[in-house]
Amino acid sequence: MSEQDTAMPPVTPHLVVDGAAKAIEFYRAAFGAVEAMRVPAEDGSGKLMHAAITINGGLIMLMDDFPEYGDGQGSSPRVLGGSPVHIHLDLPDVDATWQQAVDAGATIAMPLEDQFWGDRYGQLIDPFGHIWSLASPTGSDDNAS
């Protein structure tokens, strides 16, 4: 990444996506992502070997699925039949971002509701099979004593 881009944080999710360029556009529309870099594959396939975006101040790397390499380490949720990983966004206005993501094509997995632990929280699945949890504090904590 160049000097002007976001520095590499100590822990960074790296998503494998079936259609990384389309995913970047979805994440831009859904979550306000900003593209930091894009490296196309050298085989002329149009796939992305590496890309990076920022969402809500955090860095996410992503790449296209390359099943032809057969190592199993580059499999997207579509290939695997789902994802066991959730990507969490803590947001100042969860309702606005939620609606933006749904309008962009996310599927509701868990409705956005006020939760007993003090967050307004819900889960979405993006068109590429990745699970996103979105939350904002409600200002109340029903667990407080």
Rank of each mutant, 00 (worst) to 15 (best):
F66M: 13
P111A: 09
E68T: 13
H14S: 13
M110Y: 09
P111M: 04
V94H: 08
F26S: 05
A109W: 08
L59D: 04
M8I: 11
R28E: 14
L124P: 07
F66R: 10
P137A: 14
V16M: 07
G122V: 10
N56G: 04
P111R: 00
W117T: 00
G19T: 05
I55D: 00
D95K: 07
A7G: 05
Q100C: 09
G118R: 02
W98T: 10
A33C: 00
I131A: 11
M49F: 09
P127C: 00
Q99Y: 03
S83V: 00
D114E: 13
D142C: 13
S75D: 14
I131C: 14
M110H: 12
T97N: 05
S2I: 13
A41R: 09
G32Q: 07
D93N: 14
S83A: 10
G44Q: 00
P127E: 06
A135Y: 03
D90Y: 11
V16I: 15
E42K: 11
V16F: 09
P127H: 08
V79Y: 15
D114Y: 09
M1T: 10
S145G: 09
M110K: 09
K22W: 02
A144D: 11
E3M: 15
A101C: 09
H86D: 14
G32R: 06
L124S: 02
L91Y: 13
L48P: 01
P10D: 11
A101R: 07
D103Y: 11
M8H: 00
L91R: 11
V39W: 05
G32M: 06
G139C: 05
G129M: 01
G32L: 02
A20T: 01
L59F: 01
D103Q: 12
E35Q: 12
G81N: 15
P84V: 11
Y69N: 15
V102I: 06
Q73L: 15
S136E: 01
D103I: 05
Q115H: 09
L62E: 06
